[in-house]
Design a protein around this nucleic acid. Structure first.
Lengths: 137, 137
DNA sequence: TGTAATTGCTCTAGTGACTAGAGGTTCAAG
DNA sequence: CTTGAACCTCTAGTCACTAGAGCAATTACA
């Protein structure tokens, strides 16, 4: 039996976040002590670790809910789990490409300025004028 | 003189977003028509273009506020503008690296499974067990 | 000039995934 | 038995918008 603080430090999820997860139905409400404090059974460790890990990997709470349902039904085909993971991989790839473009753009902008004062600063000029941009963000 | 809809289509910023920008003090409240509708002078085009471009590049509203103040004072040194841009470049680089690691991790996880059912699905196993991970996300 | 369609107005609430704070209660150690 | 840390609930705030309700003004066309 753990208190919420012990659970928090074991799993690496903050105390208010654990209560938040309970409030949105991601984890079940645990039993309470006589003084109304949460007391967790060891099983919750696995579930919370799963959640934390999936969140670290950038999966949304909704996606995690789906995966948790799958996880609870060992006889179901796991295609859907792969589908969710692959969908997320696609999202990641798109985000990475976009950020790389922006990074290039910003590098180009900053390297272009040799002025001292704002009046002729190329960074500020470039921000005010979209036409000099290479990509179509 | 533009209506808010005309301004919106000229600059590519949605109408509610323009009103939102006004509400947080990013753009000045414009004059109104007799019927209380917003009427914009042409000057706002530049400012809103600046804002839109900076937002597209991922800068925060707070950073943009700073840049707009700089922009209005052509005699100030532009070091600060470069500082903001460079800070943002660092953030971008960090984010990109992190996403790439996650992408690798997720790829490794998904390629590792040749099961049909959830019971032995490596994707779900890996999500439940952090210890198999290469990076320390 | 009449009318219908479009565009505009304000206000409130919702999004995602938490985080912060107030004001109070319970628990564990000494 | 006391002290201080950890716990409780509840509300509100974060960021940068977005959605919707209910109504008013403007514009285009006949």
């Amino acid at each position: 039996m753990f208190s919420i603080g012990q659970l928090s430090s074991k799993v690496g999820v903050k105390v208010p976040t654990i209560r938040y997860y309970e409030s949105i139905g991601l984890i079940d409400p645990p039993h309470r002590s006589e003084g109304n404090q949460r007391r967790y059974e060891p099983e919750v460790l696995d579930r919370l670790t799963f959640i934390r890990h999936a969140r670290d990997l950038g999966l949304s709470i909704d996606a995690i809910k789906d995966l948790l349902i799958l996880n609870a039904n060992p006889d179901m085909p796991c295609d859907e789990a792969h589908l969710i993971a692959n969908q997320h991989l696609k999202d990641l790839a798109r985000k990475i490409t976009q950020l790389q473009q922006l990074s290039l753009e910003l590098t180009r902008i900053t390297q272009n300025c040799d002025s001292d004062t704002v009046g002729h600063c190329k960074v500020l000029e470039a921000l005010g004028d979209h036409s000099t941009c290479k990509s179509d963000h």
